[in-house]
Simulated scan of single mutants.
Amino acid sequence: MFWIEKYRPVTLDQVLGQERVCEILKRCAETKNLPHLVVSGPPGTGKSASIEATLRELYGDTWQDNVTIFRTADLMERRKSALEADERFIHLFKSDESFLSNFKHIISSYASIRPINAEFKVMLFEDAHALSHDIQHALRRTMERYSSTCRFIFCTTQASTLIPPIKSRCLPLFFVPLPRETIRNCLLKILNNIPEEDRISEDETGLIVAASCGDLRKAIMFLQVRIETKIPFNPDTLSRTVTQEEACLALHEMKAKDIAKAQKRLQNLMITQGLLGREVISMLLKVTEREYNDPEIVTRLADADACLTHAGNEYLQINALVTTIVAEVFS
């Protein structure tokens, strides 16, 4: 069994490092008054687990009867075939109509049905950043029409991809990257549950914490792989990837003052590889530490990371980062 599932939070009290957001969600569950939500933040910070815990407290053991979950990334990739293959939508799917028409019909039908022993039902969109703009505009109208019987929750790592009309109708909740000490304490608790001969040293635990970059899910996966394979953890091997090489080339282009080429290379990483802005910055940091060891570059990377932490537009921040490094470091 994967440890990320074994140690997945079930209640809001078990969610680590997000006290402020969890307090808001607790109040929503207690008052039975949940607004539309945009839940954003980096991966592995507890977004989905917190929402599921809130829904359990809101509806009890039968929470799934009043919640419809859309795996948006898969839906937008497979489009009509995804709707056609989903047993929930067989009675609503119309093969002679377009994906957009079918999607609008399904959403409207589900939103209009009255909830079971509750005042409203919930539609949860995982990876909401994958939603196209035409789908988002269709959802906006549905949100307006059926707000009395249905609440919409958009869970995403990139809130900037959602259109303003949707964001203006939702309460924004931002999950911050977890502090290293929080991740370390969680890993130590997990280690206490395994035989002493299989445990790892504090130094190696520290390497895993540092490599996770605030992502608790990633840290737990690294720890499980380390324990089960018994191969010493080496963070350098994690960075020897195609995407890391692309980040290295981008820094070389910045040094050559080719701003447009460096910006395009980093944008391609985000578009074609699906990387987040913070992941791009993390790779640039690793290259900087390995090849440049320049504190000025690190400072600019930290500034850009701070902007992204406060939900800034990822593409704008990465482009601005490239321009700043060229102008202030390599000028």
Rank of each mutant, 00 (worst) to 15 (best):
I227M: 06
S239T: 00
R217G: 12
R240E: 09
I220Y: 05
K218Q: 09
F233C: 14
M221Y: 01
S239A: 06
T229H: 04
I227L: 10
D236W: 11
S212R: 12
T237Q: 14
K230D: 06
T237P: 05
K218T: 12
L223W: 01
D215F: 01
P232F: 09
I220Q: 08
S239Q: 09
F233G: 07
V225R: 15
I227N: 00
R226D: 11
T229D: 03
D236C: 13
M221S: 11
L238I: 02
A219R: 08
D215L: 15
T229Q: 08
I227W: 01
S239H: 03
Q224K: 13
E228P: 02
F222T: 06
P232W: 02
T229F: 01
T237N: 08
E228T: 15
T237F: 05
I220P: 04
F233R: 06
S212Q: 05
I227F: 01
F233W: 07
L216N: 09
V225E: 04
L238P: 04
G214A: 10
R226M: 10
A219W: 03
I220F: 00
T241P: 06
V225L: 13
L216R: 13
A219M: 09
K218F: 00
D215V: 07
R240P: 00
I220A: 02
P232M: 08
